Amino acid sequence: MSDKTGHLILLTGASGFVAAHILESLLRHGYDVRGTVRSEATADKVRKTHSHLLEGTQSRLTFAIVPDVASPGAFNDAVKDVDGVIHTASPFAVEVEDNERDLLQPAIKGTTEIIQAVHTYAPQVKRIVITSSFASILDTSLGDRPGYTYTEADWNPISYDEAKTADGPTAYCASKNFAERAAWDFVEEKNPNFTLATICPPMVYGPLQDDASIAHLNTSSADIYRLMNGTSKEPGHTGFPAFADVRDVAEAHVKAYEHPNSSRYLTTGGNFQYRDVCEIIKRVLPAYASKVPDPDATERVETFGVDNGHASRELGIGFRGLEECIGDAVRSLVALEERG
């Protein structure tokens, strides 16, 4: 796709932390984008944040209002006339009343609605990229699993019945697993016009966009902010000890869109523990050192490994290390603090 002029991509959930970086990457690569958002006010916010990339050509970024991604027919109009789809929109919740009603089914339907809409109303689409998660790869029942290395060949083995009564974090991981499986099952059963790729990042950190609010941080950014604002007294156990830089995850989506293969991609910069994050914050922000937990207050443990070789080779991505990822993340958090 050397000439991307007029090539329109539907980006769902365009205001999200990862999606905002995907949007920036798409615009920089020359694509036109139709983003889905829940309201016109959110569309205005996203448009303003990315205005520096539009250079007076506001028509390169348009929006479709989709209040509920899991509702029947949610994307039927949004997919019309687009050339490709990058689907990031997904319900996120950990504490719910009913796992199946509030978590599992919304996650599955949020994915199946977009691919069914493309299959029915956008036969011209040849490629869909879906944001999945390392949660669909990880076997949560085995914990830290030292000595094992996860790859794209692994699948979270939890059953649907187990997930219905599981604790919140386990059920959330299961929801990502079932949503991704539903996408692959659809492709196998329907043999649609499009090919599919899924991006499976673990914890996603990195710099925030300028429109972010320190009072309303996304989950992963709040995970870092608690280690620099004095609210955490020790690093704590690292439940998901693998990370990815949001800029690499964004680039992986665009590269996967341009790649012909149907594949899963484990996009990760490697392993980490919260004590490593604390050490980096102390180095990068010495003025915050007194608020940062003592790294040694939490013991280092042996954990599983993660292999990014497939994504690195096939998509041509050199993944950022933890120092750059966390350093840029905390500097952006300081900038948000200073803006109030």
Rank of each mutant, 00 (worst) to 15 (best):
A171L: 09
I158G: 04
R145K: 13
P169C: 05
R145N: 14
Y148N: 00
I114R: 10
K109Y: 05
E100H: 05
V79S: 06
Q124A: 10
D77S: 14
K80Q: 15
I130M: 06
T140V: 14
K109D: 07
I137D: 03
H87I: 07
D154S: 08
V85D: 04
S175G: 01
K126P: 12
D83A: 13
Y150R: 01
D161W: 06
P146A: 06
I137F: 09
V85R: 11
A166Y: 12
A135T: 05
D167G: 05
E113T: 05
S141I: 00
L103F: 12
T140Y: 14
S136L: 08
T149Q: 02
A174P: 04
T120I: 08
K80W: 03
E97T: 01
E162T: 13
N99L: 04
T165V: 15
S132R: 10
E152M: 10
A93S: 14
D98I: 02
Y121Q: 02
D77G: 12
R145A: 05
N156Q: 10
S136N: 08
K164M: 11
D77P: 00
I86R: 09
V129L: 02
E100W: 02
T165L: 03
C173H: 13
A78G: 08
S90V: 09
A135E: 04
S90K: 13
W155R: 14
T170Q: 08
T170P: 01
R127C: 06
N156S: 10
V94W: 11
I130K: 00
E113K: 01
D167A: 11
W155S: 14
R127V: 05
T151F: 13
V79D: 06
A163L: 08
I86P: 03
D167C: 01
G110N: 03
R127N: 03
P146M: 04
